[in-house]
Design a protein around this nucleic acid. Structure first.
Length: 409
RNA sequence: GUGGCGGUAGCUCAGUCGGUAGAGCCCCUGGUUGUGGUCCAGGUGGUCGUGGGUUCGAGUCCCAUCCGCCACCCCA
């Protein structure tokens, strides 16, 4: 019989990992709440068409990374690769545009992408997704970015850089893409195969090629930043002014382009090089055409996805585990457990974490177990009385009937 | 999807030239000890990732496959 393993690229979150996990997601939730973002949870599966329409049929995500299948009713469904499109779908479906705008929403949950796994890249991973829908106020761009910087600050992560760019909108980007295409035609001889391949699929990404020779040539190419329309340029300047006001440090990266088609104007990534090649801990941007694209009224929005596993890598080893137990009962072989069980229940009722041995251990073994669990009180029961040990204090004894009061009172 | 490296106990690893499997930690038991710490002794636990091949004999050599890691592509 072959042993079963978690499917490739997926992982269990073990009890020993839960304290850090809960600390991290708890901080995320707390910050979101403080900033006025409300939690929304959407299904893991979505209509395949929604994902294609929003991420873009030509994007890598849709081309090779989706888990897509037909259900028994013949519907084509896709495991969500990200949460922005599902949240926008819910925004439209449930008429959230009739509630006060902007709608500030967040979710935390698993996402799926059929990628080749490596450190920091999983087929199932958890993301915090934060979305502000219904305004294009640049102050919200700054808020969303500063929100994540605040999460990092709380968790003590300082080894990151924030990259920032604006990639224009439907008014100025098409014109820019034409100018870029014309320039690339003119300078085709100076490009290499990699650059030509990118040019064909994602023209904005030609600036990512590694060849120094090509990079040198590209220095003369038109950049999106110089081609922004007045409104986009103005918007971007405001975003930067507000970030400065928040005291958020960033680097302008004119070639920062994101992988999904729906992005407009502001794009940004938080990166931590120390965690490996997969160094983007958080990535996002504005998506002013997305809601309209999937059947809603023209509605602007901005948001980001932040990977929980990558953030954990960035955190490194950190011990946030405390004692998991308050009271542990050690029963001598002669002890009557029918007298102990009600005490356990009463202590638990009073909010104390109480437990006893179920492993058939010897008395010595049970005392050892109490130590391993970090019990604050170790109650050694023998007959109608008990000896109680507390670290750093002298032992004391009590009758079983007064025990609960002595401990919880 | 492409290329490279690796998989031996729950964990970290050793295993020589191919000769029938080891250590430490963890866990369990007993002893020592004026607290649950220390120390001592013993014990549980492995189809050597899986399947095939070569061989008298494979953890070791060969092939395939699965999983992990690294880089690419791309991304959180």
């Amino acid at each position: 019989m072959t042993r079963f393993e978690a499917p490739r690229g997926t992982h269990d979150i073990l009890p020993s990992e839960q304290p850090v996990w809960q600390w991290v997601t708890g901080q995320m939730e707390e910050v979101c709440a403080l900033y006025g973002y409300r939690r929304i949870d959407t299904p893991g599966i979505e209509d395949t068409e929604l994902i294609i329409r929003t991420s873009g049929g030509g994007s890598d995500v849709v081309q090779k990374e989706t888990y897509t299948f037909s259900d028994r009713g013949g519907r084509s469904l896709t495991l969500r690769p990200e949460a922005t499109a599902p949240i926008c779908r819910a925004y439209i479906e449930h008429g959230l545009h009739r509630e006060p705008q902007p709608q500030k929403l967040y979710t935390i949950g698993p996402m799926w992408r059929y990628d080749r796994p490596q450190k920091g890249r999983y087929r199932e991973h958890w993301q915090l997704s934060v979305e502000a829908i219904g305004t294009d106020d640049p102050a919200v761009d700054a808020e969303v970015i500063q929100l994540y910087a605040e999460v990092l600050r709380r968790l003590g992560v300082t080894s990151y850089v924030l990259e920032l760019n604006s990639i224009g909108d439907r008014n100025c980007r098409p014109a820019y893409l034409e100018r870029l295409a014309a320039w690339l035609d003119e300078h085709d001889a100076e490009l290499d195969d990699e650059a030509r391949a990118k040019r064909a699929t994602t023209p904005l990404r030609v600036f990512d090629v590694k060849s120094e020779r090509v990079q040198k040539a590209l220095a003369g190419a038109p950049k999106i930043g110089e081609s922004l329309c007045y409104e986009c340029r103005e918007h971007f300047e405001q975003v930067r002014r507000f970030l400065d006001a928040y005291g958020v440090k960033y680097e302008l990266v004119p070639t920062l382009v994101r992988g999904l088609d729906y992005y407009t104007r502001t794009t940004f990534e938080f990166k931590d090089e120390a965690i490996g090649a997969k160094d983007t801990v958080c990535g996002g941007g504005r998506y002013d055409g997305l809601i309209e694209e999937i059947g809603g009224a023209p509605t602007p929005g901005i948001g980001f996805g932040a990977g929980v596993e990558r953030l954990l890598l960035s955190l490194g080893e950190r011990d946030v585990s405390g004692a998991q137990l308050d009271v542990y009962f050690v029963c001598a072989e002669t002890a009557d457990r029918t007298r102990v069980l009600p005490l356990l229940a009463e202590l638990r009722r009073r909010g104390l974490r109480a437990d006893m041995d179920y492993g058939g251990r010897s008395q010595k073994g049970q005392i050892g177990q109490a130590g391993r669990l970090g019990a604050g009180w170790t109650v050694i029961v023998d007959g109608g009385r008990a000896t109680v040990r507390e670290p750093g204090r002298d032992d004391w004894t009590a009758g079983l009937d007064e025990l609960v009061e002595r401990i919880s009172g």
